[in-house]
Design a protein around this nucleic acid. Structure first.
Lengths: 339, 339
DNA sequence: TCTGATACCGAAAACCTTTACGGAAGCAGA
DNA sequence: TCTGCTTCCGTAAAGGTTTTCGGTATCAGA
């Protein structure tokens, strides 16, 4: 009972060979019913668990696998990324092992370490807000495990990645508002926390600049969780200003949903009084009333490509693969009045 | 180049021992720089890939893992189930390998086979619409792999499962409508395709029966995809009837979203003219206008328990574990007028 | 008594790698 | 010359299982 029982432990106890034990356990022919029963009995008693590694080794199996680390599997965008990854992984006979970092740095490192130790052929990771370049990539480099960053990226990172052009997406979104006559455009976002939030904020600023609108800090709100409630609260504050905004660009569709919720409850006409543009083209954006203008993010396609990049760099570690997906504006009801 | 290169192939070619090759590859000390370089060079040339199995075996590592098979990872409910599974799996040091069946029977079987061959310690599966009891469970039984069914279940199934009480949930939902004065209640659902849909349909019928309302086939609509568009179309048809319904209970929140969309576009007052109740308490239900009355489904909790059941049955295969989660009504705006 | 079939079992190789241990060679210092 | 240290390398065992090949025993039939 002490340590893990092996085939030979059973064999010795019963004075038979490991061959026979193996035969009994895998109910093959060429074995006496009594012997078999004895083996089965003892195996259960010793809580015998076959060693998968040994079996696979002997059977000449080989398994290719990739580890996927996501901040939040329940999040719509990431779940579509996962979907894309899985499609191409299965097409190429790779198992997909998934871990959730919950945006935590330590959890992320633990997963990377675990996956590497396990021996995955590669790692596809969407870094959490907290995570730092050195912590993650250094470990991966040292273990010589190919990896691809997804969605978020580190400042001086030069390796493989797939991401969407958040800067340009935000620029397009904001410009869209300006082109529709809005001049006082607020932003609710996560400015400093993660690269994605920062990129969108920067794109927003760029669009203002391009159109000769000066930045006004009073209508720029930081939100930490990018949830609906934050959008609601921020809108409340923004509309209470002496000089309230006539449009809001939010870092996320969820936040935009909060904005729209506030407007709905307080009879604020969207888009006439307040135009709203979100980000992600998540499911809710076409369900919410009014339907949300937003920026499309091709999660599934990104996942597919992330796998392809890993696969390519698996064969040729020298060349690096990088792709920034263009961002597309999807105009719905929340930003322009129906003609 | 023919077959997979091994340590000994490199060793023989260079007239050295496998020990030295191993040393070179894992850059240990005790090795001459020239030798090391030669090994590295040849290894690259032969495209040497170390055998993970052999390494792990030798290093006495052991990995516990579970395979999770879901019809659709991108679906909100399933992604929360996955979240729950992963939490408890990581807590108990199990890797989580995920596969998507896309509701396809063959894909499901392929995944089961793959996972079993791989040697997962257990399988957690949410069967797709198509899947049949025999196909799946027989295989699992034969391989002696513990498994637990999630969300959906087979007619004469007697093994481990976690699911939500769809029958009672639908009954509660329908009764709620009746209690609020509705008498002509339609149903849009997937009646025959999957157990879940059938259960909800049955619960709906039961509630009608309990309240002395006779079933009317003309206001029962079958939808195949449970997507928003189906809800929209079905509503259009239902409301065009001579004797249109005054309430609709849908199999899914998504379908309900379609109903609400139709109402919104055609100025039908919800809930006054038409009350709506969905199913799942998905994210959209609290975002949509009017907010959707629905039945709560605790995906995350279900996932957690599914893992726990597997874990328990791993140690004791005799006793079976079954849990049906109670269904809770969440009343929002779509079914009762705000008081 | 011999032949052949059948039922059961075991020795050893194979799967591929790492590692404990020891050995040889070279060189410096005494 | 001897001792001791360093540098490099190899032998063999170990990790746990499956499988090939063959062996013994028993019994029926001739």
């Amino acid at each position: 009972m002490s340590d893990k029982a092996r085939l030979i432990d059973i064999a010795r106890a019963l004075n038979i060979s490991t061959t026979t034990v193996s035969r009994a356990l895998n109910n093959k022919s060429d074995i006496n019913a009594k012997t078999k029963e004895a083996v089965l009995h003892l195996a259960k008693q010793l809580d015998y668990q076959p060693n998968k590694l040994a079996i696979s080794l002997r059977k000449k199996m080989s398994f290719k696998s990739i580890g996927v680390i996501l901040p939040n599997v329940g999040h719509y965008f990431f779940s579509t990324v996962l979907k894309g990854i899985m499609r191409n992984a299965h097409l190429n006979n790779h198992l997909v092992i998934v871990g959730e970092s919950a945006e935590s740095n330590s959890q992320e490192q633990k997963l990377v370490e675990e996956f590497v130790n396990y021996g995955v052929n590669g790692i596809l990771i969407a870094p959490g807000r907290e995570s730092k370049n050195e912590d993650i990539t250094a470990l991966l480099e040292s273990k010589r495990t190919p990896y691809v960053l997804m969605d978020r990226i580190f400042p001086n990172y030069t390796g493989n990645y797939v991401l969407s052009d958040d800067f340009k997406g935000a620029e397009i979104a904001t410009t869209h508002l300006i082109e529709n006559g809005k001049r006082r455009i607020a932003h609710i976002g996560s400015l400093h926390n993660c690269s994605v939030g920062y990129q969108r904020f920067s794109g927003y600023l760029s669009a203002l600049d391009n159109n000769g609108i000066s930045k006004d800090d009073s209508i720029i709100r930081e939100c930490l969780t990018t949830k609906m409630e934050e959008g609601y609260k921020a809108t409340q504050e923004l509309l209470a200003l002496e000089n309230p905004p006539d449009a809001i660009f939010t870092v996320t569709d969820d936040v935009a949903a909060g904005v729209l919720d506030y407007c709905h409850r307080h009879q604020i006409e969207v888009p006439k009084q307040l135009a709203v543009v979100g980000y992600s083209n998540s499911e809710l954006s076409s369900i919410i009333k009014p339907k949300l203008t937003t920026i499309e993010q091709k999660g599934e396609r990104m996942g597919e490509l992330a796998f392809d990049f890993f696969f390519a760099s698996y064969k040729d570690k020298e060349t690096i693969h990088q792709k920034t997906f263009e961002s597309k504006l999807i105009v719905r009801e929340s930003s322009v009045s129906i003609k």
